[in-house]
Design a protein around this nucleic acid. Structure first.
Length: 113
RNA sequence: UGAGUGAGCCGGGCAGUUGCGGGUUUCAUUUUGAAACGUGAGGAAAGUCCGAGCUUCAUACAGCAGGGUAACGGUUAACGACCGCCGAGGGCGACCUUAGGGAAAGUGCAACAGAAAUAAACCGCCGCAUUUUUGCGGUAAGGAUGGAAAGGCGAGGUAAGAGCUCACCGGCGCACAGGAGACUGUGCGGCCAUGUAAACCCUACCCGAAGCAACACCGAUAGGAUAUGAUACGUCAGCUGGGCGAAAACCGACGGGUGGCUUGAGCCUCGGAGCAAUCCGCGGCCUAGAUAGAUAAUUGCCUUAAAAGACAGAACUCGGCUUACAGGCUCACUCAUUUU
RNA sequence: CCGGGUGUGGCGCAGCUUGGUAGCGCGCUUGACUGGGGGUCAAGAGGCCGCAGGUUCAAGUCCUGUCACUCGGA
């Protein structure tokens, strides 16, 4: 499995929010933006609105596991930055449901076939 | 059987597959990659309310200001924590609560009501004078107010009264006895003291400051400074004093990296000392260390009525306190009822 | 990690230092002036002062704990 870098800079997140394509589902929100780094990068946002530290960690882990499954199943078109934003429902969902929602969103923004 | 009090404990367990962080070993290897083994959140990790370790700032200053604590004895590295005990208050009881020094060092405050609030004469009572209505004097027993009216209550006493005198009770002082001490008990004296110090204050004791984003080293980048002054600058935070450091290739800056980073006032078993907190000894064990931050998905079995369903995520490390918490377990004790 | 601030009628704020009566503006209700509206005037309702405990005769105010929001520094 290929390694993916993490998004760390705040400017990268802002660029994804403003210029990238987006798609929203009750499970999560996906932003996608082209980059020039040469590899795909991933950022996960869990705001304080989601809940306390345990609930934020839970949401982040579910999204990370879902993305891992997606990246093994599909190949991305070009080098892209992804930002996944957790919503208040995410912490109650199983990984499989989040994976299905993620596939739908990624297909809509044109990242996968 | 019912009601209750106190103390302690658990917070599902075992095994498998895929995947993730750290470690060790082996192999390949410039970076790094692969395999195997082993390991990977809590009782509160939380709040950050106290106390320490550690590091730096003068090898670790002084005074003032400021802050904290407050019966007594002990435990502890230390504490405002804990244990024991005394006093006070509450409960039928097991037991619980308690910032619990000083109000005769001084200052302030006590609204409204009431005659009067820390010193007092409105009504009443008594005596004397008198134009019969008032004046002067004595008096805190009685009256209404108030949280509080100047020790309480009874007897003597008196013109009327008053600790003025006496008995009992309460408070204070002294002596003796007991105790490690706070204090308790007994006897004697004498009647002077309203409350408030979580009001200022006084007394005793304690406190230098900042915090792992500390700090040390490496690295790249752009910049400042341009000369010998005991001045700028830096430094123990507030004020004053006094001192120290530092200089020609140096200074501070920094979204970088490495260390700091987990063996520690550590955990477990057994024995001993102590009412207890806790301490001592023998033996055994190594148990997260990330740096945008690692625990997810799923299967089977067991315990169970049912495997779910609480509160909640380490961030330098410890000791406490406080707060949140589904469901349950153990021990000791009290009261009531019934039976023997 | 360290250190501040705020919480009071529906909304925005005083009152806390020096403890005894909880007030101001906007809004709300009723009435009057007007043919009606707006506006003005008059009257009124609406508060256990974030929560719990303590000190005190008495607490919005003082003390302790706690909850929520918010600001600043490294």
């Amino acid at each position: 499995m290929q390694k993916y870098l993490s998004l760390t800079e705040n400017t990268d997140f802002q660029r994804a929010y403003h210029r990238g394509k987006s798609c929203a589902r009750p499970a999560l929100v996906v932003y996608s933006n082209k980059n020039r780094v040469g590899v795909c990068r991933v950022g996960i946002t869990t705001s304080k609105k989601i809940g306390n530290a345990v609930e934020r960690n839970r949401s982040r882990r579910v999204i990370r596991a879902a993305f891992r499954a997606v990246s093994e199943e599909y190949t991305f078109k070009g080098n892209l930055d992804f930002v996944f934003v957790a919503r208040s429902k995410t912490k109650y969902l199983k990984t499989e449901k989040v994976r299905l929602a993620m596939v739908e969103c990624l297909r809509e923004v044109g990242a996968i076939e």
